Amino acid sequence: MKEKFRRIVGLILIIVGLAIIGSIVYKKIDTSKKQKELQNILEEVINEEPRELTEEEEQKLINGYTPIALIEIPSINLSQGLVEGITDDVLQYYLGHFENSAMPGEKGNFAVAGHRVSDYSEAFVNLYKTEIGDQIIVKANKKEYIYEITDNFIVSPENVSVLDDTEDATITLVTCTVGAKERVIVTGKLVETKDL
């Protein structure tokens, strides 16, 4: 009787384990699909003249999210789409632009958030590996904005001064540390603008 019970419990644990693994794999595949869709859309949007999108266009583009730019960090092999906002539903799949911060190439602090690790997105999993002098390439509005990393440090979640506006064109990337107790901050300055 005990042997039969152990087998049943063992079988149940295997089924639960497989269900958990299946769920995680599904989420990663779903995220990869959504990010690829956004990148394809951004490739088209990047090469258009900047203009306001209608609600219908936004809905058609990426389920109501406003596409902003494609962000690349060659040193960590990152290429991710950026949309407006930093709500959970945005960061679940994409990088998010802090509303009211500067836009790509503008003077001021262009601030971006992304998950380090989650069930869905791991956009900034290697952000902490960037070094001073590495490039952050932002493609938007028929331009390629090249930022050079000036710092990489950790702050407490309460320290929001990293989002303060700046006089020059700068970029701030924000993600969590392991365990999400602190924040990894990478800052940079605009060094070059090219036409696409």
Rank of each mutant, 00 (worst) to 15 (best):
K142R: 14
E144Y: 05
S118T: 09
I136R: 07
K129T: 11
F110K: 11
I171F: 00
A140G: 02
D119I: 08
T150Y: 12
Y147S: 03
D165M: 12
I132N: 15
N126Y: 14
T177Q: 09
N109G: 03
F153P: 03
Y147F: 14
E158G: 08
D151L: 08
V178R: 12
I132A: 14
F153S: 05
A113T: 00
F153M: 05
S156V: 03
G108N: 11
I137P: 02
E144V: 14
A169W: 07
H115N: 13
L163H: 09
Y128M: 07
E144S: 13
V112Q: 08
F124P: 06
S161Q: 13
K129A: 14
L173F: 05
T177L: 03
V160F: 03
D165W: 00
L173C: 02
V160M: 14
G179V: 05
A169Y: 04
D119C: 02
V138W: 08
F153W: 10
S118W: 01
A169R: 07
H115E: 11
Y147C: 04
S161H: 14
F110Y: 15
H115K: 12
V174Y: 05
N126A: 10
Y120E: 14
T150P: 04
V178N: 10
R116Y: 10
N141I: 00
V178D: 12
D134K: 06
K143W: 02
V162W: 00
T130E: 15
G114I: 01
K139Y: 13
K129Q: 15
E158A: 05
K139T: 06
I136H: 10
T150I: 11
E131T: 13
D151E: 13
P157W: 05
Y128N: 11
S161F: 09
G108F: 11
E167P: 01
T177I: 02
E158Q: 12
V162C: 02
S118C: 07
N126K: 01
A123L: 06
Q135G: 03
F153I: 07
I146W: 09
F153K: 09
T150C: 13
F153T: 13
V138E: 08
F124D: 04
D119K: 15
T177Y: 03
E148N: 13
L163F: 13
F124I: 11
A113C: 05
